[in-house]
């Protein structure tokens, strides 16, 4: 799978990860190596094989509809970089 610099920039944007200008080339090369290894998968025919998402193939358990969590806002917001009046603050979101 051919992967070029602009692909890497696109993926990095999707993943919201800044990559320094000087690292892009190196990152591209490494990702190419990894994808090259990953491409070994294409060697095997998997037609008619069901994908397996969970090893045990069990079924989702359901919880009863009860409120079990109390307000811990102050506790949680001690972890936050910036809050005001109980809100988490981020740079202005443009609608």
């Amino acid at each position: 799978m051919a992967l070029d610099r602009s692909d890497v920039e696109g993926i990095a944007h999707l993943a919201r990860i800044a990559i320094n200008e000087q690292d892009i080339e190196n990152t591209t090369a490494t990702l190419k190596d990894i994808l090259h290894m990953v491409d070994q998968m294409q060697a095997v025919n998997t037609d008619n094989i069901e994908p397996l998402a969970h090893p045990l193939e069990l079924v989702q358990r359901l919880r009863s509809d009860e409120v079990t969590e109390a307000n811990q806002r102050d506790h949680f917001q001690q972890l936050a970089p910036q809050t005001e009046n109980g809100l988490y603050l981020v740079p202005k979101v443009i609608e």
């Binding site: 359901l62 919880r63 969590e69 811990q72 806002r73 949680f76 809100l87």
Partner: peptide, 30 residues
């Protein structure tokens, strides 16, 4: 298990799971 009641003070009904803190997991409401 956080409440869904309308009109509460901001972030007082957001528990660790709702906040996406590290290591928390979802369990589906029946």
């Amino acid at each position: 298990g956080a409440s869904t009641a309308f009109g509460a003070e901001p972030n007082t009904q957001a528990c660790a799971v709702d906040l996406g803190l590290p290591g928390v997991l979802p369990v589906l409401n029946a």
